[in-house]
């Protein structure tokens, strides 16, 4: 089975701060990492390969330094990598991003399965996976948490829902996005890391993908991020003082009066 795993380089969100003046991300000194959800996608792909055989290609779009996440993926044991990097890609929203990623996958031969993390921790859209499937005209299942059957022709997967899970039969070629329940990511391997050191990441630009400048990047995007800001806490605050019984009763009254708690008639 030939598998493509989409991975994104993101700022290490555990350490990201917003500049209160400019409302932009303070990126200085913040390490870049593989989007944590994409590690679950990598793990899922590695497990599928263990069972069904085949090869995995790690695909990413980003600035030249995003080659690092491709190398990291090689360290985890994927077979090949491809980075889409071009000044023209800058400022892409999910529409323009899927245009580039889908074009790259379309150029690859015999891709049976595309695996994505459920969303990226920087944009949090969860649109890129499904968007790629839509553009390629392939069936997709989002939020996969487990595999029941794996073969070259189909996957039977469990799709996480708010109130349980669905069992979905996905004919291949197709796309899945995965959630963390799919399995704890393994550590990288020594042989993989040694290979990653030597590995030269292939890079493709818009022209290589047969895409015009107006189809990609900011020009090819329907949306733009105008401003990023931390919301101000604007709610009215009141401090209740007194005994626990008193303040507890007052708090309940307030919640009911303000219709935070709705009492049945």
């Amino acid at each position: 089975m030939k598998i493509v795993v989409c991975i994104k380089q993101v700022p290490d969100t555990a350490h990201v701060r917003l500049d209160p003046e400019t409302h932009t991300l303070k990126r200085e000194g913040v390490e870049s990492i593989i989007n944590p959800f994409d590690l679950f996608a990598l793990e899922a792909a590695l497990r599928i390969r263990e069972q069904a055989g085949g090869a995995i290609v790690a695909l990413s779009m980003g600035p030249p330094q995003a080659a690092e996440v491709i190398k990291e993926a090689i360290g985890y044991g994927v077979d090949e990598g491809l980075l889409l990097s071009d000044r023209a890609f800058a400022g892409a929203d999910t529409w323009a991003t899927t245009a580039a990623l889908a074009a790259a996958i379309g150029q690859m031969e015999d891709v049976d399965l595309i695996v994505c993390g459920k969303q990226a921790v920087d944009g949090d859209t969860a649109q890129v996976g499904p968007g790629i499937a839509q553009r390629l005209g392939r069936p997709q299942v989002a939020f996969v948490k487990a595999f029941r059957e794996i073969s070259g022709q189909r996957l039977v997967v469990e799709r996480q829902m708010d109130d349980g899970f669905d069992v979905v039969d996905l004919p291949l070629p197709g796309l899945i996005t995965v959630v963390r329940e799919v399995g704890e990511p393994r550590p990288p391997s020594l042989k993989g890391k040694m290979r990653a050191k030597q590995y030269r990441v292939p890079v493709k630009g818009a022209a290589d993908l047969g895409l015009a400048p107006e189809q990609v990047g900011l020009a090819g995007s329907y949306t733009q991020v105008v401003k990023v800001f931390a919301p101000q806490a604007t709610g009215e605050r009141r401090v209740l003082q007194g005994s626990a019984q008193e303040t507890g009763a007052q708090a309940v009254d307030l919640l009911v009066d303000n219709q935070v708690i709705l009492l049945g008639s």
Binding site: R186, P187, L190, K191
Partner: peptide, 8 residues
């Protein structure tokens, strides 16, 4: 084992 540490 997955990390190749038994291969050392």
């Amino acid at each position: 084992a997955q990390a190749d540490l038994f291969q050392i």
